[in-house]
């Protein structure tokens, strides 16, 4: 099916390439991303260090590839949390149409939608601090905290889309037929309604992963995201801010390019999927000829 949309295919290829790199980073013949060597600091790109080295003599290629791991993991994690919360709440609200629960759920969505993501993340991470947090018996790493905190803010958009689509789908006759069989609400919502409204949700999700990657980079840039020594594109950019105008272009170019390519990959995939799923883009027959 993807073959019909070159745009989606290009996006998918980009994401797949980055994904493969992220998975294979530990086995690739690369120097350790955290191995320092003061003597080798600020080396320009060469046969030995393809992307050059940074202030501590760490290999930028290795750090960029390892950075893909945290970027993708956090970007995807945020969206998974947002999807789970948003889809559940959206479906439940649609099923409860006309009740107080519907009203409360959708107003809750409005409240969360009004919170600016970055400011919220900076504020909350600022309060609970970076590094692992102990909540009772559970220890949350900084990355897990990020995924949870930002994921919560991703659910309103998904909840609204799910709610609108589900409201329309619930009026279909086959849903009534299922109710007449004595099937419970949850089985109807997840077994019948969700598969029929999944396409637009996947489009939204793939675009949101791109936004999630940018948020991770932004937070790491201000030091609240991925913590050293683990490399991240955002923190690499932050480290390179003194050298932007002094000639060591490779320090900012490669992580910046990595962010650019992965975000554009997810956006292209989203655009392509939307075109594929959009019934108006399929060849139509006029009424009467169907």
């Amino acid at each position: 099916m993807l073959a019909r949309s070159p745009v989606a295919l290009l996006g998918l290829a980009l994401i797949a390439a980055i994904g493969v790199i992220a998975v294979l980073a530990p086995v690739l013949p690369l120097p350790s991303p955290s191995a320092t060597s003061i003597l080798d600091s600020y080396l320009p790109p060469s046969a030995e260090h393809w992307f050059g080295t940074d202030a501590l003599g760490r290999d930028v290629l290795s750090r960029t590839l390892w950075g893909a791991r945290s970027s993708l993991a956090i970007g995807l994690g945020i969206v998974v949390i947002g999807m789970v919360l948003g889809v559940s709440l959206g479906l439940a609200a649609a099923e409860a149409a006309g009740t107080l629960f519907e009203e409360l759920a959708m107003r809750l969505v409005d409240i969360f939608a009004a919170i600016p993501v970055l400011i919220w993340a900076i504020a909350v991470v600022g309060i609970v601090g970076t590094g692992a947090t102990q909540i009772g018996p559970v220890s949350l790493s900084n990355e897990a905290k990020l995924v949870l905190l930002v994921g919560i803010l991703f659910f309103p958009g998904i909840a609204r889309i799910t709610y609108g689509l589900a409201l329309a789908e619930l009026t279909q006759e086959y849903v009534d037929a299922r109710r007449l069989q004595g099937t419970g609400s949850a089985a109807i919502l997840f077994g019948d309604v969700l598969p029929n409204i999944l396409s637009p949700l996947l489009v939204q999700a793939s675009v949101l992963v791109g936004i999630g990657i940018i948020i991770e980079a932004s937070l790491s840039f201000v030091g609240l995201g991925v913590q050293p020594p683990m490399p991240s594109w955002g923190s690499m950019l932050a480290d390179s801010k003194q050298t932007v105008f002094s000639g060591e272009y490779w320090l900012s170019l490669f992580p910046g390019l990595a962010i650019f390519l992965s975000v554009i990959g997810f956006n292209l995939l989203g655009d392509g999927l939307r075109d594929l799923f959009d019934p108006r883009r399929r060849t139509r027959l006029p009424k009467g000829a169907a």
Binding site: E173, Y174, R178, L180, Q181, G182, D192, N196
Partner: peptide, 24 residues
């Protein structure tokens, strides 16, 4: 009770596309 009722009384719909789940 809903299930018991479903064995006694049933409904036939208009028979448009919407009367069957397109994914099943």
């Amino acid at each position: 009770e809903r299930r018991a009722l479903s064995r006694r009384i049933q409904l036939v719909f208009q028979g448009s596309q919407a009367s069957l789940n397109p994914r099943k």
